[in-house]
C-alpha cells in the first residue's frame, strides 16, 4: 500500500519534475534561457497551444479525440479577420454589415463553437468514431479557410485588434491573460461543476454513466463545441499576433495539443487527467521548442526529439496505469 501510494504521488508530479529538469538543463546549456524576455516570449508562444489543449483535454477526458482544432483555428481566425476588414456585403438587399472588433471576434467564436457542435453531433447522433468525424472536419475547415481567403492572407487588421496578440496589460502579455482566463474557467468547469463530473464519468465508463442517467450525448456535444470555441480563441490570438490571417495557419497544431494533453498525464482512454497537467504539458513543449532553438538544434532534429518526448510520456503513462 505504501509503495502504491508513493508511485501515485510521483506520477502526480512527474510533469512538474520533468519541467524542472528541462529548465535546469537549458539554464546550464544556454545563455539566454533564464531571462525575463525569454520567459515572456515562451509564455506568449504557448498561449495558443494552451487554449486549444484545454479544449482537447475535455475531449480526451470523454475518451474522444479532436483532430480538427488546427483547421478550425485557421478558419475562425480568417473569418474574424475577413469580417473585421471587409464586413459582409449583401448586394441583393443593398446592405453592408460592418463588424467591430468585438463583433468579428464573437462571429469567429460562434463559427468555432458551431463547427465543434457539428463534430459532437456526428460523434453522438451518427456514431461516427471521433477520429474519423474530426478528420473530416479537419479537411472541411481547411477548405472553408481557402474559400474564404481565396488562398491569400488577410492583413492590416488595426491596432485595437492587434493589441490582443501583441499588447501588454499590467506587465503581462495579453495572450497570457486570455489563456489564463481560459485555464481558470476550465479548471472550475472540470472540478467544481456537475458538468465536469459528467465528463470524467463518461470517459471512465460510458455504459455505467448512461445507466446512471448522465445525458451522454448532450455532454459530448457540449465538449466538442467547447473544443471548437477554444480553437477559435486560439485563431483570434494567432491572427492578432501576426496582424494577418494566414490560410495555412494552425497546420499540425492538433498534434501539439494532443502532445500537451498526453505529456500532462491525461489518459487517451479517457476519465483521467487534469487541466493543470495539460498546462504543464504545453509549457514543457514550449520550453522544449524554445530550448532547442536557443541551442541551434536543426528543425528536423527538433521534430524527432519532440516525437520521442511524446512517446516517452505515453510509455510512462501506461506504466503508471499498470502500477495503479
Amino acid at each position: 500500500m505504501i509503495s502504491l501510494k508513493k508511485n501515485f504521488n510521483i506520477a502526480q508530479f512527474q510533469s512538474l519534475i520533468a519541467l524542472f529538469v528541462l529548465c535546469l538543463a537549458l539554464a546550464l546549456l544556454t545563455d539566454n534561457f533564464m531571462t525575463t524576455d525569454n520567459f515572456w516570449n515562451v509564455m506568449r508562444q504557448i498561449s495558443v497551444n494552451v487554449c486549444i489543449s484545454v479544449g482537447m483535454t475535455l475531449v480526451v477526458l470523454t475518451a474522444g479525440i479532436d483532430l480538427s482544432v488546427g483547421s478550425i483555428l485557421a478558419f475562425c481566425g480568417a473569418v474574424t479577420a475577413g469580417l473585421l476588414k471587409n464586413g459582409l456585403s449583401i448586394p441583393s438587399l443593398n446592405l453592408f454589415i460592418g463588424f467591430t472588433v468585438l463583433g468579428a471576434i464573437v462571429a469567429g467564436f460562434l463559427i468555432g463553437g458551431g463547427l465543434g457542435f457539428v463534430n459532437g453531433y456526428a460523434v453522438t447522433k451518427f456514431k461516427v468514431p471521433p477520429f474519423v468525424a474530426t478528420l473530416a472536419m479537419l479537411t472541411m475547415a481547411r477548405g472553408f479557410t481557402m474559400l474564404w481567403t481565396k488562398g491569400h492572407p488577410i492583413t492590416g487588421l488595426g491596432d485595437s485588434f492587434g493589441f490582443l496578440g501583441t499588447g501588454w496589460f499590467l506587465g503581462i502579455p495579453m495572450p497570457v491573460w486570455i489563456s489564463g482566463i481560459v485555464v481558470i474557467t476550465a479548471v472550475i468547469l472540470t472540478s467544481k461543476t456537475r458538468f465536469g463530473r459528467y465528463i470524467y464519468a463518461i470517459g471512465g465508463n460510458e455504459n455505467a454513466s448512461r445507466l446512471s442517467g448522465i445525458p451522454i450525448n448532450k455532454v459530448k456535444i457540449w465538449v466538442y463545441s467547447i473544443a471548437g470555441l477554444l480553437a477559435a480563441v486560439g485563431g483570434v490570438l494567432v491572427t492578432a499576433r501576426l496582424d494577418s490571417a494566414q490560410p495555412n495557419a494552425g497546420i499540425s497544431y492538433e498534434l501539439d495539443a494532443i502532445a500537451a494533453v498526453v505529456i500532462g498525464g491525461t489518459s487517451l482512454s479517457g476519465g483521467r487527467g487534469t487541466i493543470w497537467g495539460t498546462v504543464l504539458g504545453a509549457i514543457i513543449i514550449g520550453v522544449l521548442n524554445n530550448g532547442l532553438i536557443l541551442m541551434n538544434v536543426s528543425p528536423f532534429w527538433q521534430q524527432v526529439i519532440k516525437g520521442m518526448v511524446i512517446l516517452l510520456a505515453v510509455i510512462i503513462d501506461k506504466s503508471n496505469q499498470k502500477s495503479e
Binding site: 464586413g87 449583401i90 453592408f96 460592418g98 463588424f99 468585438l102 464573437v106
Partner: peptide, 15 residues
C-alpha cells in the same frame, strides 16, 4: 448589448 456593439449597418452603395 453585445449585438449593438458588434455590428453596424449601412446601404451598400454608400459604403
Amino acid at each position: 448589448l453585445v449585438g449593438y456593439n458588434s455590428i453596424y449597418i449601412q446601404p451598400l452603395d454608400q459604403k
